[in-house]
Design a protein around this nucleic acid. Structure first.
Lengths: 101, 101
DNA sequence: AACATATTCACCTCTAAGGATGAATATTGG
DNA sequence: CCAATATTCATCCTTAGAGGTGAATATGTT
């Protein structure tokens, strides 16, 4: 699942959509407002965020209300945190070898 | 810079390459060994990792030695951590409203 | 000089993503 | 019923990525 999550996060438009939703649930139109691109393009971005399960949609009449789902972000964060630790350890060992022995 | 970093991390082959390099510097050929795809394709993945500055290359004779650069990973990790906090806060507030208010 | 090794370059194919526009669908409000 | 609103569907264009193969380049070895 990391694939879809990280790919979804790689696009600045989608990150902006997520930031918007972090302030509260919103309709597709609301979310699209700040962008210069077409509503249709925003709709596609939203669909990708849904595919990555970062965003959920509930339909109320003709309005689609979007909300965040933190789970995939947690997973991605955990993976990166684990790598950070590994890398830091590895670079620390290297340092030891260079200075101490 | 987040764009390139997250896009680079979105591919499983590239994440595997990074994991390999976390165990120690290695040549392009070494890094390519576990994969069934061609050396050429791996070389291209390495180039993308370099573009994202996650990997550095030093040339020793005919060998290109690859090593990790943790900085972009730190930035990506920080962004995700910040979002996680924001989202958690937002969902916490929502919870309050639902139960208490 | 000749050969092997390490890596990239130049192309080609296929698929997916990002953008646009115009039409279709569903719902709400007079 | 009819018009406006909210959203997606269908289609098109362009660009980038992931994969492949074969040739080119550079270095090391005998």
């Amino acid at each position: 699942m990391l694939d879809a999550t990280l790919a979804a996060l790689a696009d600045p438009t989608r990150r902006a959509i997520l930031s918007r939703l972090a302030q509260g649930d919103a309709r597709v139109t609301d979310v699209a407002k700040p962008f210069t691109i077409s509503l249709n393009s925003v709709s596609k971005h939203v669909r990708m965020l849904e595919r990555a399960k970062l965003v959920r949609r509930r339909i109320e009449g003709r309005e689609h209300i979007l909300s965040l789902n933190p789970q995939p972000l947690d997973e991605a964060g955990d993976w990166i945190a684990a790598q950070r630790k590994l890398w830091a350890w590895r670079l620390g060992e290297l340092e030891k070898v260079l200075t101490d022995g």
